[in-house]
Simulated scan of single mutants.
Amino acid sequence: MTKKLIALDLDGTLLHSDQTISSYTVETIQKVKELGHKVVIATGRPYRMAKSYYDQLKLETPMVNFNGSLTHLPERKWDFELDIRLDHNYIWKLLDLKETIQLDFLASEYRNKFFINFDKKETIPPELFGVDKIIDKMELIPHKITEGPNGLLLQTGAEDKYAMADFIREHFRHDLEVDSWGGPLNILEFSAKGVNKAYALKYLLSHYGMEAKDLLAFGDEHNDREMLDLAGVGFAMKNASTTLLPHADEQLAWSNDEDGVAKKLEELFL
């Protein structure tokens, strides 16, 4: 069988709703790797909030973070690393719109750190950023922003996060990428124009001498659209957002909480 590049989203896809990966899924992925297929995490999460899953799965492949803005080998020097930054002026432009977009908080995200505005500090859940507590050194203050971020993350109080994402795209004349998180949180994430999971996966396919037909991709949300479009076969989870379904070749019969990814991989390869 032709060796595949298998791209896995985390939230709503590989992870259960309690943010865990089952032992069954871990074991299945190990067996698939042993057959020579390459498994990569492709997530909107920052690196610090994805590394534990990378380690749990015993991966040695590059990881895609920030929806494609950072493609790297964790904790290792890699000459082919992609580190794409967003113009930091978007931070201040979004903060200027805070009333219009019903902003709870805005975070400027980097590989190993983040800064967040404290206007509504009480609305910031520390666990969202992988920390125990939001402390002063994390406050978003102009003098701390010395370089463009890999991505921006905001929470809006708007009832319809998809409509708000459309509004922000239009406001900035589609000069940056705006995606939404799955689940109940009204989270929007931003990256440089043209940068998404598919952008990073095209790069990895080229690096490995593979073609798009060799890519299998699993996702559940708006930010997985381009990745599923690119893939030879794109799978949407049973629990996938309706915005993703037109981009999928197949919707799985199982949700993330039912280990849908592992069951499909077992069906395909084992």
Rank of each mutant, 00 (worst) to 15 (best):
F235V: 11
L35K: 14
Y199W: 14
Q102H: 06
A7V: 12
F218K: 08
S255T: 14
I84P: 00
V32E: 12
G12R: 00
F269A: 04
F172L: 07
V195D: 07
G194H: 07
T13D: 00
F269L: 02
I29V: 12
E139W: 07
S22A: 10
L265P: 13
G157N: 13
F115M: 08
Y47D: 09
I134T: 03
S69Y: 10
S108D: 12
Q56D: 02
S52H: 10
N67Q: 05
I41F: 01
L94K: 05
L59P: 02
L245A: 03
I135Q: 09
E109W: 09
R225L: 06
F218T: 04
D224K: 05
I168P: 13
E211Y: 01
H37F: 05
D214Y: 08
K120G: 00
L140S: 07
L201H: 13
L152N: 11
G44N: 06
D214W: 10
E189S: 14
E60T: 09
F172D: 07
K193A: 11
T61A: 14
A248V: 13
K58Q: 11
F114W: 03
P46L: 04
E177M: 13
F167E: 12
M1R: 05
R173C: 09
Y90S: 05
Y208G: 06
L201G: 01
T25V: 06
R169H: 14
N186E: 07
E99R: 02
Q19S: 10
A7R: 03
E226F: 07
H171Y: 15
T243N: 08
A158D: 12
T13E: 00
E127G: 01
Y90R: 05
E177K: 14
L216Q: 01
E147G: 06
N117H: 03
T146R: 14
A198P: 03
R173A: 15
E177A: 13
K263E: 00
A192E: 15
Y162W: 12
I134H: 02
